[in-house]
């Protein structure tokens, strides 16, 4: 473990907590893409199946369980409890166009051709693009609540911090995983436009407004 990875995990945890707070406090999931939340649940479940096969550490196990439980809880709040506030008209991204290519790519490019490894690789590729429905929704509605933009900033920062973690691990431990690095780079790049808007607008107290 290193400071970059710990900061990344905590930023990730903060993002998930911010989202739960937003939905619970406002009793509304307006402005949140249920499609992205479905993809995140698929990412965590397909990546953390090794919960039953390998024990890494208490921290690792606890965090995996927290991520799985919170993503399922978010789906429950969006599609059941606060279903009436779900903006399904604007949340229209065809996630099958992300799920299928990521799975096919995982079958083609992977570190080992075993079920767990293919699913892990699929989850890595899927996580890189899982935010697209959310960014698509924000671009369609043209704005986002401030807490939603804080959620997105924390979520985007987590993988950016993981990039620093991979640089550190390469020089400190000689360890690297090109699949995770390439996917993580793409994932972080997808947030750049949002990062720019967040830093130039939200941090100045303005609302996140996308140029119409």
């Amino acid at each position: 473990m290193n400071i970059f990875r710990l900061a990344g995990d905590l930023s990730h945890l903060l993002a998930i907590i911010l989202l739960l707070i937003k939905i619970w406090k406002t009793r509304s999931c307006a402005g949140i893409s249920g499609k992205s939340q479905i993809l995140f649940a698929v990412v965590y479940i397909s990546r953390y199946l090794d919960l039953v096969t390998t024990f890494v550490s208490v921290y690792n196990t606890v965090m995996k369980l927290v991520f799985i439980v919170s993503s399922v809880a978010t789906l429950y709040m969006m599609y059941v409890k606060f279903k009436a506030t779900y903006d399904h008209n604007h949340d229209s991204f065809r996630i099958e166009f992300l799920l299928v290519p990521c799975f096919v790519l995982a079958l083609l490019i992977h570190a080992a051709f075993t079920p767990l490894e293919i699913l892990w690789t699929f989850s890595i590729y899927l996580e890189a693009v899982a935010i697209l429905p959310q960014l698509f929704l924000v671009s369609k509605t043209g704005e986002a609540e401030s807490i939603t933009s804080h959620y997105l900033f924390a979520l985007g920062s987590y993988r950016a911090l993981y990039l620093l973690n991979w640089i550190y691990r390469y020089y400190a431990e000689g360890h690297y995983d090109l699949i995770a690095i390439f996917a993580g780079a793409i994932q972080t790049i997808l947030y750049c436009d949002f990062f720019y808007l967040y830093i130039t607008k939200v941090l100045k107290g303005k609302k996140l407004q996308l140029p119409a």
């Binding site: 890494v56 570190a111 075993t114 767990l116 490894e117 993981y162 690297y176 995983d177 995770a180």
Partner: peptide, 10 residues
């Protein structure tokens, strides 16, 4: 070496 199956990260 490229990491194989031992994924110790979240």
């Amino acid at each position: 070496s490229v990491e194989g199956n031992n994924h110790d990260e979240l």
